[in-house]
Write a protein that binds this DNA or RNA. Structure first.
Length: 546
RNA sequence: GAGUGCGUAGCUCAGCUGGUAGAGCACCUGACUUUUAAUCAGGUGGCCGAGGGUUCGAAUCCCUCCGCGCUCACCA
């Protein structure tokens, strides 16, 4: 080390002389002053770099090293730090219930074993807090009354380890229920330290990339994911109770269909064929209804190759349900039923707060047609507009940009999006969308330019999309043909012709109501999260270098 | 995709108009059989996101890249 240092030091001098001579030839005084200072700085730098290089390159940081050494010590004693099994006999919850009446400073003879992650160590190991899935258990280990093996094991325990503790139950003078240690078992030695206990983990990047760590540190993160599961379960139960069948349809599609969206493309080697990851399960589900299912639903992971933001992830969970002998009016009732049940099951109330606003879901949701809302917020009555030219002029006058070839329907939808959505805080079913925007929907029974479709908005966000499903095969074929034309004109989100689907309709699809729910958005709303990433266990993240 | 902000110890964050990298927690050593963000004393730990430039000298100024956040555009 000594020679390395002095070599490095000489090397510094040469470097410094060369560079300085070139640049500061005229100022000798300045040269000398900075020469000395720079030498000192560079020498420090070289020492630091030398030290760094001799310690490690791939063994990790100091705290991990210390834990690895403890792991090695355990192995040397013949102790498996990752044993096969351990059966705790009590949990935080069961103890606090059973010993609720136990007075402070009272020792019982009851022996229990608990297991969980060490979250805090106080007083040189005398007190530890371990957490199981139900909460905290305090562990008390006295130096005086514990066996040497216990104290040796205690020395091997770090914050973050998962341990099992067998001992007697008591309540301390200060009123904390504790287990007095008789035996400590290492169940999983943690090699990495946990984030700081007070501020915890706040870096969103780390939270999303290492969700397990986020869950350990932030109770609300694990809570959200548990609620997600419960919401899905709630909806599943509701549908099963109505006699509907849960089905699974293909994720790999040969034709992109069911939604206007850009697909992901993948390749099957044996078939030597490109396949699309599904953007929606809709067409397959309706074919199952043609086949005689009494109504079907699927929690479908969909994939759309589009932008990402707080309400869009490239893969997301849609729930679609199709029920014969129903129409879109029935679907409005159904969606309200779904939202109320899920909210009650997961929050225990129908009055919730989201994004700083209050929502009372017990009230019936408003039902307003799209053109009616446009009329209310802009004063323009699109139903009085006859031609596409007039519609474009009306949009233009409102400051809404539309394409030169946009038709009446596109103009109405564009004006709605820009002028109305921002006002739709409280739940509202926005009904009767323009026909040209909805190739899979039945024409409105009274207005030929509209279809029987609704989207429900809550807090300005679209929560669901539902139709009186188009069942006329001839109409469906001509709608697909329009989509194909749009596609050929450069709209790569437009639908492709799906002959198998149209053929299925030719066998007869009964009048059917369909409803699709953006599960992630509904879950966001019901769990109080404003970013879709918070309700996904592992949101899509950019790849890191290394 | 465009604009904008951020990236410093394992974690949370300071670091001024450039001048030898700091704190708290965590960790290590010791004290204390008590506590609950335990306390006290001492200590270890940094490619200051990466690369380039300006400068005698860059965490700091400039450029490029990477990652994240926010706003906007497309969409559920």
């Amino acid at each position: 080390m000594g020679t390395t240092q002095s070599n490095a030091f000489c090397f510094c001098i040469v470097l410094v002389q060369n560079s300085l001579l070139r640049k500061v030839v005229f100022d000798v005084e300045k040269y000398l002053t900075f020469f000395l200072k720079t030498c000192i700085v560079l020498r420090c730098r070289y020492q630091m770099k030398g030290f760094k290089m001799t310690t490690d390159e791939n063994l990790g940081h100091e705290q991990r090293q210390i834990r690895l050494e403890k792991l090695k010590k355990l192995e040397e004693k013949g102790i498996n730090a990752y044993p096969h099994i351990y059966k705790p006999t009590a949990t935080s919850k069961s103890l606090s219930e059973k010993y609720a009446e136990l007075a402070p400073d009272t020792q019982t003879e009851d022996i229990v074993s608990v297991a969980g992650r060490v979250r805090a160590i106080r007083n040189s190991g005398m007190f530890m807090d371990i957490y199981d899935t139900t909460g905290k258990v305090q562990i008390y280990t006295s130096k005086e009354s514990s066996a040497p093996e216990v104290l040796e094991m205690l020395d091997m325990v770090d914050i973050g380890d998962i341990i099992g503790v067998k001992g007697t139950v008591r309540r301390t003078k200060r009123g904390e229920l504790s287990v007095n240690t008789q035996e400590i078992t290492m169940l999983a030695k943690a090699l990495l330290p946990l984030p700081e206990k007070f501020h915890g983990l706040t870096d969103t990047d780390t939270k999303y990339r290492h969700r397990e760590l986020d869950m350990i540190m932030n109770p609300e993160s694990i809570e959200t994911l548990i609620k997600r599961s419960k919401i899905i379960e709630s909806i599943r139960q509701l549908f099963l109770s109505k006699g509907l069948i849960e089905v699974e349809t293909p994720v790999l599609h040969t034709i992109k269909g069911g939604a206007t969206a850009k697909p992901f493309i993948t390749h099957h080697n044996t078939l030597d064929m490109d396949l699309f990851l599904r953007v929606a399960p809709e067409l397959f589900l309706k074919r199952l209804v043609v086949g005689g299912m009494p109504g079907v639903f699927e929690f479908a992971r969909n994939f759309r190759n589009e932008g990402m933001d707080t309400t869009h992830n490239p893969e997301f969970t849609g729930m679609e349900v199709y029920i014969p002998y129903m129409d879109y009016n029935d679907m409005m009732d159904l969606f309200e039923e779904v939202v109320r049940k899920a909210c009650m099951d997961v929050n225990g109330t129908l009055e919730i707060e989201y994004d700083g606003k209050k929502f009372d879901l017990s009230k019936p949701f408003a039902r307003r047609s799209m053109h009616d809302l446009v009329k209310e917020y802009t004063g323009v009555d699109f139903m009085a507009i006859e031609t596409d030219e007039e519609a474009r002029a009306a949009a233009d006058k409102l400051g809404v940009h539309v394409d030169d070839n946009a038709d009446w329907g596109h103009c109405l939808a564009a004006v709605f999006e820009e002028k109305c959505e921002e006002h739709l805080i409280q739940p509202v079913h926005v009904t009767d969308h323009p026909k040209s925007m909805s190739p899979l929907t039945k024409v409105h029974r009274k207005e030929p330019r509209l279809v029987e479709r609704f989207e429900t908005f809550i807090n300005c966000k679209e929560m669901c999309n539902a139709y009186s499903e188009l069942t006329n095969p001839l109409d469906q074929r001509s709608r697909f043909e329009e989509q194909v034309k749009a596609r050929e004109a450069g709209d790569d989100e437009a639908d492709m012709m799906d002959d198998d689907f149209v053929e299925a309709l030719e066998h007869g699809l009964p009048p059917t109501g369909g409803l699709g729910i953006g599960m992630d958005r509904l879950i966001m709303f019901l769990t109080g999260n404003t970013s879709i990433r918070d309700v996904l266990a592992f949101p899509t993240m950019r790849k890191l270098n290394k």
